[in-house]
Design a protein around this nucleic acid. Structure first.
Length: 416
DNA sequence: TCTGGGGTCCTAGGACCC
DNA sequence: TCTGGGGTCCTAGGACCC
C-alpha cells in the first residue's frame, strides 16, 4: 500500500505557522517578481482565485475581504518542507519525497490504515504546525486520487483499499483530476466521451497506448489497482539545471543582461556542484515580454563543452559569449536564463588530452571554498563581480515575510 | 504599471555508422 | 527495370508534474 501525504495549501500554511493573524482570512502567495497567485488559502480559493491569477487583479478583491497577499519566501518553505519530511521519515524509511509539499510512503503490516493515516496527520501537525492530508491506496495513482478525496471530504485521511470502493469513487472522479492527465489529454478524452477516471480505466490497452503513449497505459493500469510505479527511494541527480527569472523592469542593455546571466550562471553552477555533477551543455535564453504589444524577440543558443565543468567562472565566460551571439539591440527584455545539461558525475568526468589535471583540481578547491563560505554565511557572501553590485533588474518581492527559521536576525520575537 | 520557475519523460525524425 | 538492413545517437517538440 502507498500513502500520499500532501501538505494543505503549503506555502500559506508555512506563513501561518509564524503569523497567526493570517488564520481564517483569505491569503495568497505570489510567484517570483510578485507576478501572479501560486498558492491560496481555503478562504482565497472560495473567493475564486485561480493559480496564475495576476496579482493586480487579485489585489482589490483581497482588500475588500481583509485578505493578505505575500511574496513567496522559498527559504522558509524549503526549511519547513525539510521539517515535514523529517517527521514523515520517522514513520518509515520507505519514503519518496516527490515535491516540496508531498511524499509517498510505503506501508506494510499496518492493521488499521485509516488510524495510521490519522496518526501521520496529527504528528506532522503537532511537530511542525503544517496541516496535511493523507490518501492511502494500492497504487501511487490511486493514492493521489484518495488524497484528493481526503482533502475534500473532511477528516483529512481517506483509504481506497477494495475494488468496489475504488470503482465507486472513480465513477465520480473527473478525468482531468487524474494524476498524469493534463489539459490536452483531458480535452481529447472528453471529446471521446471519457469524462471520469472509471471510464478511462475501462478503455482497451491498445487504444490507450495509441492516444496516451506508454505513460498513459501505465496510468490506466494503476487506476485498475495494478501497481506499475514504484517508490523512488534514492534522490537521483538532476539531468538539467535551470536558473531563470523575470526582471522587475524592462532591460535593454547588454551589460544588464550579462549581469543577470552571470548571476543565474553562479546559481546554476552552485546547484550543479551541490549534487556533485558537471555539465557539458550550456544554454542561454532571453526574451521580451510576450504580454506587451511591442516588438517581440526571443532566442536561445547552446554551447557544447569538450570537458564537463562545474566551475563558475568558466560557466560565466561561456554563458556570456553565448549571450553575445543572441543579443539584439533595441528590444525590451523581460526574462533571461541559463540551462545546464549533459550532466555527468563530477567524480568520473572524462577530461581530454589537453586538460591539465592540476589546474582542474585547483578549480575544484576554489569552488568548494566558495560553496562552504556561502553555505555557512549566506548564499551571496561571496559573489562574482560580473553579476554586478546594483542589480536594479532584480525581481520584485515587496511583501516578503522574514526568514523565520534560517536567519538569526529574523527570528520571531515573543513578548509576554 | 502588472501575467513564475524548475523539472520529467516520450516520440518522431534526421544524421550517421557498418 | 532494378538502389539494403539493422542499428545508435541526438534534437525538437509536446505532453505532463508541482
Amino acid at each position: 500500500m502507498f500513502a500520499l501525504v500532501d501538505c494543505n495549501n503549503f506555502y500559506v500554511s508555512c506563513e501561518r505557522v509564524f503569523d497567526p493573524t493570517l488564520l481564517h482570512r483569505p491569503v495568497v502567495v505570489l510567484s517570483n517578481n510578485d507576478g501572479c497567485v501560486i498558492a491560496r488559502s481555503q478562504e482565497a480559493k472560495l473567493l475564486g482565485f485561480k493559480i496564475g491569477t495576476p496579482a493586480f487583479q487579485a489585489e482589490s478583491i483581497l482588500q475588500r475581504h481583509q485578505g493578505v497577499m505575500l511574496s513567496s519566501n522559498y527559504t522558509l518553505y524549503g526549511d519547513m518542507s525539510h521539517r515535514v519530511m523529517e517527521t514523515l521519515s520517522m514513520f518509515t524509511p520507505e519514503i519518496e519525497i516527490y515535491s516540496i509539499d508531498e511524499s509517498f510512503l510505503s506501508l506494510f503490516g499496518q492493521k488499521s490504515l485509516y488510524e495510521y493515516g490519522q496518526r501521520i496527520k496529527s504528528t506532522v501537525y503537532q511537530w511542525t504546525g503544517i496541516p496535511v492530508s493523507v490518501g492511502i491506496a494500492p497504487t501511487k495513482t490511486l493514492a493521489k486520487v484518495a488524497n484528493k478525496i481526503a482533502k475534500k471530504e473532511g477528516s483529512g485521511v481517506y483509504v481506497l483499499d477494495n475494488d468496489k470502493g475504488i470503482k465507486l469513487k472513480l465513477s465520480t472522479f473527473d478525468v482531468e483530476d487524474v494524476w498524469g492527465i493534463g489539459g490536452q489529454y483531458s480535452a481529447m478524452l472528453k471529446a471521446h466521451h471519457i469524462d471520469t477516471a472509471l471510464k478511462l480505466s475501462q478503455q482497451k490497452d491498445e487504444w490507450v497506448l495509441k492516444h496516451l503513449t506508454i505513460v498513459g497505459l501505465r496510468l490506466v493500469h494503476e487506476l485498475r489497482g495494478e501497481s506499475c510505479l514504484s517508490l523512488d527511494l534514492i534522490t537521483q541527480p538532476k539531468k538539467a539545471i535551470c536558473s531563470s527569472k523575470s526582471f522587475s523592469r524592462p532591460v535593454e542593455t547588454f551589460e544588464d543582461l550579462s549581469q543577470s546571466i552571470s548571476e543565474y550562471a553562479s546559481t546554476a553552477a552552485a546547484k550543479l556542484r551541490a549534487q556533485s555533477s558537471a555539465a557539458t551543455l550550456i544554454s542561454v535564453f532571453i526574451s521580451t515580454n510576450r504580454f506587451k504589444d511591442e516588438p517581440q524577440y526571443g532566442k536561445s543558443a547552446t554551447m557544447k563543452l569538450n570537458v564537463p565543468t562545474n566551475f563558475t567562472p568558466h560557466i560565466i565566460r561561456c554563458a556570456t559569449s553565448i549571450l553575445e551571439t543572441i543579443f539584439k539591440k533595441g528590444y525590451k527584455y523581460k526574462k533571461a536564463g541559463i540551462i545546464l545539461s549533459g550532466i555527468v558525475d563530477n567524480n568520473h568526468r572524462q577530461i581530454d588530452l589537453f586538460s591539465n589535471p592540476v589546474h582542474l583540481n585547483k578549480q575544484d578547491s576554489i569552488s568548494s571554498t566558495i560553496d562552504s563560505v556561502n553555505n555557512r554565511f549566506g548564499r551571496k557572501s561571496i559573489i562574482f563581480a560580473s553579476a554586478g553590485i546594483h542589480q536594479d533588474w532584480q525581481m520584485r518581492r515587496a511583501k516578503l515575510t522574514p526568514s523565520y527559521t534560517t536567519r538569526w536576525d529574523e527570528l520571531v520575537i515573543v513578548k509576554s
